[in-house]
Design a protein around this nucleic acid. Structure first.
Lengths: 145, 145
DNA sequence: TTTGTTGTAACTTTATTTGTTACAACGATA
DNA sequence: TATCGTTGTAACAAATAAAGTTACAACAAA
């Protein structure tokens, strides 16, 4: 099972917003064209990013901007904003192991700590990259072309 | 999005097989009762574990056993056996970013390395635990009860 | 008041997981 | 060889979630 494309799309969106902020009004249509998805998908994502305090979106006149310094937005912030399974972790534990089985009634306890560590490892690595890094790399790529 | 319960169920299964190997014939029905799912779900998982060389399953007479020393089976082996999206990584990249957009045509390159690192971090942590560790912890829990 | 945009509902499509029934293929044993 | 319990697998249903689409009220600015 894969982590949904909302995550990469959100990173793409944020990169676009910053990259084109001086030259274009950043509307959902504009972003939808770069990402190549329906504008409503973008608007839904922008709402999630807004709820997380990562962007501001202007109603009426239109336009999105990033709400925090790029160096302060990590991949983890974005992941949590758009791909969180509220309250649940990365792993989906089978619901009802048999409490009458010695393994069934203990497996949750035994695995939980280790599953959390795995998720932590993933999240720690996500923290290492900020949107600033991604924008910088993108600009390097662009200027080579 | 979450990693499917196949992963935790597979770990549960392997723990059961070892824990009860001397006292019961380990059939799909037996395992299904401990996990509390349909036996066919178990049989499908056993097939995936078998394809990965982690278990042997006896046709006809019935019964499953673990095919390798427990210390040599890591959580990562199990994850790869049952939850691999063949060829694809952990992250689902949106398919068709616009090649006419400077960001769209570079975002894949920019993100790929970082996404791989995140997946690597997760997998490295998975490697740290073997089925032997899980069985040992489970036995500790059981003996306390 | 017009225009372009956002926010959101409603519905469809697609994909995936999980559950379930059914049964042929198989191996051991009586 | 006939029986029995089991596996392997097909086929389909149900549940869940993601992603696409249409439509339109709410809004802000010109």
């Amino acid at each position: 099972m894969q982590i949904s494309s909302r995550f990469t799309i959100a990173l793409h969106i944020l990169t676009c917003i910053d990259t084109f902020k001086d030259d274009y009004k950043i509307t959902s249509d504009f972003l939808a064209e770069s990402v190549n998805v329906n504008p409503v998908v973008i608007r839904r994502l922008l709402q999630q990013l807004k709820a997380a305090g990562l962007v501001n979106v202007k109603r009426g006149s239109g336009g999105a901007e990033i709400a925090r310094p790029l160096e302060e937005i990590t991949m983890l912030d974005v992941y949590r904003a758009v791909d969180s399974v509220d309250g649940e972790g990365l792993f989906h534990f089978h619901e009802n192991p048999n409490p009458n089985c010695p393994v069934g009634r203990n497996i949750h306890n035994v695995l939980d700590g280790r599953l959390n560590k795995i998720q932590d490892a993933m999240e720690e690595e996500m923290k290492k990259t900020t949107i600033a890094d991604i924008v910088k790399d993108t600009q390097k790529c662009i200027s080579k072309q």
